[in-house]
Every structure is written in C-alpha cells, then in structure tokens.
Simulated assay, not measured.
Amino acid sequence: MNPIIKYLAKNKVPEDPLVVRRLRARAASFTIIDRQLYKRGFTMPYLKCICPTEAKEVLFEVHAGTCDNCQGTTSFAFKILRQGNYWPTMKEDAKELVRKCDTCQRHGNLIHVPIEQQTAIFRVCPFFQLGMNILGPLPMAKGQKKFLLVSIDYFTKWVHDSKDTKIYWKRKKDFGQMSCPMCYGRITRLHENRPGKHHFRLTFGMEAVVSVEILSETGRMKVKQPDDTGTRGELDLLEEVREKAAIKMMVYKRRVVGYFNWRVNPRIFQSGDLILRDAAATGHSSTKLEPNWEGPYEVIRSLGKEAYSLKDMRGRPLDRPWNAEHIKRYY
C-alpha cells in the first residue's frame, strides 16, 4: 500500500512506465481522508485500509474474540468487510487463520474425496468372473452360524451361498473353488455394465425365448423360425461377438477409472506429522454438536498401503494402525 500512499500524497511514481501505468489504475480506487487511506468499495462507500499489525488483531477479534464465530473463509472475509476494514491479502489471511484454528479443525467437515487411484480388473477371457460378498454378523442361527458367503456368476447370475461361524481366508478360498472352479482366482465386484449384447446371447449364442412366445406364436416367432443350421452358425460366430463385448467392457471400465482417478486427492504423511482422526471411525457414540475429528496424534511411521502407525501426545502408541482415509493433517 505504500506506493499508492506516496502517489496520492506526494505524486511520486516509479521510473518504469509499465509500473506507473498499473499504479495509476489501482490508485483510482483509493483516496486519502484526514491522512488515512481508504478504498472505495461496493459493500460500503469507504473501506479503511489497515496495516499488517492491525490486520492480525482484527482477524483474531472477529474470529475468536468477544463475539467469536467459527466460520468459513469467504464468510469470514465478508464479515471483516462489513466492519469497514480492508487490506490486499485479507481473504488469504482469513483462510490461513481458519485452517490453523483448533476449533475449526475439530469441527471441520468429513473428507469424502478418494485418496488412492482405482484399479480396474480386466478378465483374461469373457465369462471368467465371479462376484463374492460377505454378509454379517447376522442373528445367531443353528450351529452358531452368523455369517453368509454369497457368490454370483457374472453373466448367468447363478447364485451359491454358504453359512459359517467365522470368516477367514482359507474358508473364502475353499468356497470360491466350490462355487465356480473355472472362475476362482478372478473374483471381482459384481458390476453391471453395457457390453452391447444381452447376457443370454453372449452365453448361449442366441436370443432368449420364453415359453409363452412358443405357445402363443408371437410375431417374433413367426418372423424368425428356429433353424438348426442357423443356430449352429451362430455358435461358430459367437467367439467374435464375445470378443467385441469384451473390448466394449474394457473401454467402459477405463472410462470409469479415469473419472474416478480425476477426483483422487492423495494424503501423504511423514514421521512426526500431527494429525486428527475421524471420531466416527473410532466407534465412539457421538452427537451432532460434538467434534467430527479428535486428537491431535503424531505419526510414528508409514506401514504402506496408506496405513500409518500413530501415538498420542503422551507418547503411547495406539492399539491399531489407521488408514489415511480416516485422518487429516493438524496445523
């Protein structure tokens, strides 16, 4: 602000013509009244220009003073403007203060942005895919069974289920081999996509016909009569149809992965960094008015796969590692 004050009060300008032109354009929005610099504003006729020392006092008083009110960066800056104050970096300073405020950090919104990129699973060949899911714990049944393993064939939608008392990797492996031996090893999430052809056509090489159409002689059956020679020809050409469907599914998955990865915002922490953890992820019951984050905690080391070992401020390690999805940096 000093160059503007010198220009308005003493008509002093720099030697560079380009800087002089910019200075005169900026100075048109300022004026001096009783040896005090003011800026012509839109919220108020004149906004008082204050120095950095006064700006820090105003920031602290408005945000955490007598009438403190923790709020966002933009509303915080607007509130300062309504008080009749102005300085060039007020929005950036307000953002920095809100980011470092302890109360604002603890009551901040939960982060739903993904932290790591999505990995698409492409099958070796069509139909070698199985969807598996684990449900439970459910109410105790006969034999103390409370978990349910469900597998679904990707195209035929054939379902197989099993009840268990506990879920462990060997049980899932045996169940996968029993459900579909050819598909095991390629277990993925069951996901509906549009390969361009109906699943029945891709499986059996022909369109599906229900029994009602055969009995009532529908229009489609009259136009296209069953032909054994044509059916065998369709089966010979089925491999090409499956390959085209597989290519379309691959393009679709890559497009989905690209959209998902565009939103990824990785969170990387180093040993010694201070963090806050998600209060809901700890399993403690909380109300709407309680903080969303608790801490701070210190990072001991990285365990890989976005997992970190933490300790409290007294130096006691936490009982389990925490994923970066449930923690954020503490300033």
Rank of each mutant, 00 (worst) to 15 (best):
Val124Trp: 01
Tyr154Glu: 00
Ile247Phe: 08
Gln36Ser: 15
Gln144Trp: 07
Asp273Tyr: 09
Trp322Val: 05
Ala281Gly: 02
Ile300Trp: 03
Glu243Tyr: 11
Glu240Ile: 07
His326Ala: 07
Phe78Leu: 11
Arg201Tyr: 10
Lys56Ala: 03
Arg82Met: 11
Lys166Tyr: 14
Thr31Leu: 14
Lys142Gln: 09
Gly72Tyr: 00
Val210Trp: 08
Ala25Lys: 15
Ser162Gln: 13
Ile187Val: 09
Lys288His: 10
Tyr154Gly: 00
Leu18Arg: 13
Leu303Ala: 12
Ser75Asp: 13
Arg255Gln: 14
Tyr259Ile: 09
Val113Tyr: 09
Thr53Tyr: 12
Gly219Val: 01
Asp312Ile: 02
Ser285Gly: 03
Met90Leu: 15
Lys222Gln: 03
Ala77Arg: 07
Gly72Asn: 10
Pro14Ser: 09
Gly196Arg: 00
His160Lys: 07
Val212Thr: 13
Gly283Thr: 14
Tyr38Ile: 09
Ser75Lys: 15
Arg254Tyr: 13
Arg242Gly: 05
Lys12Met: 15
Leu215Glu: 12
Glu96Tyr: 00
Leu148His: 08
Lys91Trp: 01
Glu298Tyr: 05
Arg232Leu: 13
Asp34Phe: 06
Arg329Lys: 13
Leu276Trp: 02
Arg220His: 04
Leu18Ile: 14
Val210Phe: 13
Asn11Gly: 12
Leu303Arg: 08
Leu8Trp: 07
Val223Asp: 04
Ile121Tyr: 00
Leu110Cys: 06
Lys56Asn: 10
Glu294Ile: 09
Ala279Gln: 12
Lys142Phe: 11
Leu23Cys: 05
Pro266Leu: 15
Gln71Asn: 06
Pro52Asp: 14
Phe204Cys: 00
Glu294Phe: 05
Glu290Trp: 08
Val210Ala: 00
Pro321Gly: 02
Thr188Ser: 13
Tyr7Ser: 10
Leu110Gln: 07
Ser271Met: 15
Gln129Arg: 12
Arg301Asp: 14
Gln129Glu: 13
Gly176Lys: 00
Glu54Asn: 14
Ala120Gln: 02
Arg194Gln: 05
Gly258Cys: 12
Pro126His: 03
Arg35Phe: 03
Glu239Asp: 06
Glu54Lys: 11
Arg220Cys: 05
Ala324Val: 03
Thr282His: 08
Lys100Ala: 11
Asp228Met: 11
Ala307Leu: 13
Ile167Cys: 10
Ser286Ala: 09
Pro181Gly: 06
Thr188Arg: 07
Lys145Thr: 12
Gln71Lys: 04
Asn2Lys: 11
Val19Leu: 12
Leu303Gly: 04
Thr156Ser: 15
Ala55Met: 01
Cys180Asp: 07
Gln129Cys: 06
Ser29Met: 13
Asp161Trp: 00
Lys142Gly: 07
Ser211Gly: 03
Cys125Ser: 04
Asp278Val: 12
Ala55Ile: 00
Arg254Trp: 07
Arg35Cys: 10
Lys95Asp: 03
Ser29His: 15
Ala246Val: 02
His107Cys: 04
Ala27Pro: 06
Ile134Thr: 10
Asp236Met: 10
Tyr331Met: 11
Gly176Leu: 01
Glu298His: 02
Val150Phe: 09
Gly233Gln: 11
Arg35Trp: 03
Pro181Thr: 03
Met44Pro: 01
